[in-house]
C-alpha cells in the first residue's frame, strides 16, 4: 500500500528537497519506517530509537493527529495522506532549570 507523506520544510533536504514523497505500509509506523529506510537522513527525526513517535513532531493522517488515534499503529490506506509537522512550542520559563513534575 503506497501512501503520500507530506514533509515539513525542515526535513525536505533529507528527501532531495521533495515536499511530498510516497512510502509503503499498512500503518503510520510502517510508512514512516519505510520512509526512513529510503531516506536515511530521516532516520531518528520522526520515530525514536525505541520505536515511539518523536516528542517534537506531530504526525497526522488526513486531518487527524495520530496521538489521538492509535499513534504509530494507526492504519492507513492508499487514499490517506500522512503529514508531518514540527511541534511548535516554547515559552518564557526555563524548562532546563525547572523540570515540571
Amino acid at each position: 500500500m503506497s501512501v503520500t507523506v507530506h514533509l515539513p520544510t525542515v526535513l525536505r533536504s533529507h528527501a532531495g528537497g521533495a515536499k511530498d514523497v510516497t512510502a509503503d505500509g499498512a500503518t503510520v509506523g510502517e510508512v514512516l519506517t519505510a520512509l526512513a529506510s529510503e531516506y536515511p537522513g530521516l532516520s531518528g527525526q520522526v520515530i525514536n530509537g525505541d520505536g515511539t513517535l518523536h516528542k517534537f513532531v506531530n504526525v497526522y493522517v488526513n486531518d487527524d493527529d495520530v496521538r489521538y488515534l492509535s499513534a504509530l499503529d494507526t492504519p492507513v490506506t492508499d487514499s490517506d495522506e500522512v503529514s508531518i509537522l514540527p511541534a511548535v512550542a516554547g515559552g518564557a520559563v526555563d524548562l532546563s532549570r525547572s523540570l515540571p513534575r
Binding site: V10, A87, V88, G90, G91, D94, L95
Partner: peptide, 9 residues
C-alpha cells in the same frame, strides 16, 4: 528563552 531555543523547530 532557553526553552524557545531548545524547541525551535
Amino acid at each position: 528563552s532557553p526553552t524557545d531555543v531548545t524547541q525551535a523547530p
